[in-house]
Design a binder for these strands. Structure first.
Lengths: 199, 199
DNA sequence: TATTATATAAACACCGTGTTGATTTTACAA
DNA sequence: TTGTAAAATCAACACGGTGTTTATATAATA
């Protein structure tokens, strides 16, 4: 309680800086944004900025972590779910969340956004998921991995495209499309890309 | 002929700066690279740099354009070719080219690289290719586009992954894998993503 | 050899950076 | 209300990269 109240000021400062960054990143690449203008835009003293972050990238990364932790949990839930219908529901919820937070996520996922975020996202997915080989002599392990990469890249690319739309297609439709494509890519690879929770 | 000889010095300068940038980008993100160190590393005067480029990003973009013009022609050839076997040969040649120039391309396509390059690459592919609908009531035009996006994103993502490998799989294998996956994605979408040359 | 294009050199004002120490504001508790 | 911590502000600072200028040196050609 004590700490809560004490950090009210702090939380405002951080929020102001975050919003300022998002706003500026709509206009120009982060590399061209100076700490000075970032602070002036947020109406926060430059010294205060340095009390919290080291530079623009540090601030951005803090924002990314919030988003990544949501993604981590979503993936974890998807892995645990074996029932098709339940899986679809989970997927739909994910896309609902994205719609609700589209302002921030749009920036993170856009071409303007930090490529590091997408890198982390991929790394997280690969880490969470294991590729379990399905016996088939025609396709070796390395190639199976390639099919998996293809599916993940395709899905994330589609997600980016979806976010660009001003009138975003409903979450349900996205969930169905992604689900169908990922399944078929598995089929194509003649292997089962199993989401295993035991590693 | 006259201009050729005159530009020998110039060409050396530009090459030195390009190589210097590639070398530095292996070590750190481009945003952290200063013009000063870039020039010192290349042993080129800073004033000379400004005679050719405005900043690091400008230099990088010039490099990207070379690569993009190759990609543009490759896509154009692929579109013109209807025979499956000939198409495979063309694809193989593309991957051979990438192997030969892997030092530069690796940087451009990597997470360290400029996200703008990948953006241009996607834009170029989308521009070159048209999505011709195949009559099917279940899938509307918007969704078909989504399948196409998925295929392109997947292919490019796979390309990136392939480049990361120290021991890159042979060009032929990559050509086959990509070709098969793209075909199946078309099938999945219940539509023909036709590479049409008439637009 | 004279001419032209290009690269170098030194010097410059300018601006953002990151840090310091002193001061003010804010939230809360006695 | 008042005292006390924590946090934000302010002014000032040295530092270093930026982009431009002017003069000079080097290289390629005719």
């Amino acid at each position: 309680m004590k700490n809560m109240k004490q950090s009210r000021k702090t939380r405002y400062t951080q929020m102001a800086l975050q919003d300022s960054l998002v706003e500026l990143m709509k206009q120009k690449p982060i590399a061209k944004i100076t700490i000075k203008e970032l602070c002036e835009n947020a109406d926060i003293n430059r010294t205060t900025f340095y009390a919290h972050y080291t530079d623009q990238y540090d601030l951005l990364q803090k924002m990314e972590e919030e988003c990544l932790s949501f993604a981590r949990e979503a993936i974890s839930n998807l892995i645990g779910e074996k029932d098709q219908n339940e899986m679809m529901k989970l997927l739909e919820e994910v896309f609902e969340y994205i719609i609700d937070n589209r302002n921030h996520i749009r920036i993170l996922m856009s071409e303007q956004g930090d490529i590091n975020f997408q890198k982390q996202l991929f790394a997280m997915i690969y880490e969470s998921c294991g590729i379990s080989p399905y016996p088939d002599k025609n396709v070796d392990m390395g190639t199976k991995e390639y099919y998996f990469i293809y599916a993940v890249s395709g899905s994330v690319g589609l997600l980016q495209h979806w976010l660009k739309d001003d009138v975003m297609k409903p979450a349900k439709e996205m969930a169905e499309t992604i689900y169908r494509m990922a399944c078929f890519t598995q089929f194509t690879g003649c292997c089962t890309v199993q989401l295993s929770e035991d590693r």
